[in-house]
Design a protein around this nucleic acid. Structure first.
Lengths: 244, 244
DNA sequence: AGTTGTTGTTTACGGCATTAACTGCGGTGA
DNA sequence: TCACCGCAGTTAATGCCGTAAACAACAACT
């Protein structure tokens, strides 16, 4: 009969931080499917039911991990943006380009995390109507949004006039703008539209690369990413600096 | 003690078709995570190990299901393309637009299947270096590719000259072209590049919508899809017909 | 009629989430 | 000092999962 580790064998009591970090480690090493309560507990030298002291369920834990990854990514992006700003004297174009490339760099070095945030939702994990993940996800989105907003305020690029937008879409955009709070007040809906289009392209290019769905054609999708930026820059009144 | 159904209780012997159909039904009803051997067997009135007579493993079964979905989608697209061709006197623009909209329609009415094909790979299911899924996936891609190819042959739109393409990318595109067989012989690499760019935008727009990742801004992403088509049409020398 | 191959079943192993009941410990108040 | 309470863990159990091995019923062929 093997004796389970007694209270005295564990140096101290567990914390939610430790649990999430362990979950994270397992995610990176063995993929999203391997992040089980048992695996986490095993790694921490305890048993699975103990984790219920800290999280209501497996799903709850996963959501907190996702939220953590979101803030980590957001912080990473903001750092990269600041650094680009510093080394270019606050040039906005450089900032937004740096943000895009840093997003790609992070995604490729954190594929598992990327899948957790942007891939198909795990079975039994409903991120959509969840408080914390929605908040952190919003923060992430805002990071890109404020860049485009700043860009537009300084060098206004043309956006579709509100009246020229399909009424159904217009209504949705108005709701979206209202949800943005003071960040969105007074903004033309066309600007939100531009933002969504940029995000769509960025997301599509990156998720194809990260998930390996471009493998049928390419090994290294880096040049494709750059092409996407070249294509998309004009949408926000920027010319992508070609270095050739 | 409940008696398991004896051979006589089952009308006839199972077929791989039935198994895959059952798996499919479960996929649609309960999501990808619910497609377990036990669930399939239960639904069919048999026991899980029996399925090993027909498939080497759970993974193998899933791969065949994926392959089936690919061919189904491809057939669906080809039918839509033909029908659009018939009702427009063979107009190429109409065909390619019909293909895109049909792809969206199919994806939204088959979200689970879409996730299976284009989402994050299921744990323990390696579609990448698999024979059958790669083939069927290739067929799917070709469906779009031949449209663009036809379009280019009839009304050549400008493509980046081979020499103007980043050498690293060029090399990959050459390999990709070689892999296309006779379909690709003699084609400018820039054409492949256009195709990949179109696919990236289509995929990004659609997967954001299907996976609900646009929920933070929009409920109905239909207008965004159309905007994407409007944006992308010029890449292949087409003007998207605005009906307003 | 006996043999063989096909198509199932039963049983078993280890892993999973989750629940319920229990235990050892620290600290607190009498 | 001692009884008590609550915290942080345990064990045990339920019912899922994929998979493997042994076994049983049946059909067809010799």
């Amino acid at each position: 009969m093997v004796q389970a580790p007694s209270r005295r064998d564990r140096a101290r009591t567990a914390t939610t931080q430790e649990i999430k970090q362990t979950a994270r480690r397992i995610l990176v090493q063995d993929g999203p499917g391997a992040v089980s309560l048992r695996a986490i507990a095993r790694e921490m030298g305890m048993t699975a039911p103990a984790l219920y002291r800290y999280f209501d369920s497996h799903e709850e834990l996963i959501k907190h991990v996702i939220a953590d990854i979101f803030t980590e990514l957001t912080d990473d992006l903001r750092t990269a943006i600041e650094s680009a700003s510093a080394s270019s004297g606050g040039n906005l174009t450089d900032k937004v380009i740096a943000a895009c490339w840093e997003f790609r760099r992070w995604s490729l070095t954190h594929k598992r995390e990327f899948g957790m945030l942007f891939g198909t939702p795990l079975p039994g994990v409903n991120v959509e109507q969840d408080e914390i993940t929605a908040d952190r996800g919003g923060e992430f989105g805002n990071t890109f949004f404020v860049l485009i907003l700043e860009l537009w305020r300084k060098h206004p690029f043309p956006v579709t006039a509100d009246e020229a937008i399909d009424p159904g879409l217009r209504q949705q955009l108005e709701r979206y703008r209202d949800g943005l709070g003071e960040l969105g007040t007074g903004l033309p809906l066309g600007l939100l539209l531009i933002f969504l289009r940029c995000w769509t392209r960025l997301y599509g290019t990156l998720s194809l690369e990260v998930f390996g769905h471009l493998g049928f054609a390419l090994d290294d999708a880096g040049p494709m990413f750059e092409l996407m930026l070249v294509d998309t820059a004009p949408l926000i009144g920027v010319e992508y600096p070609q270095q050739r």
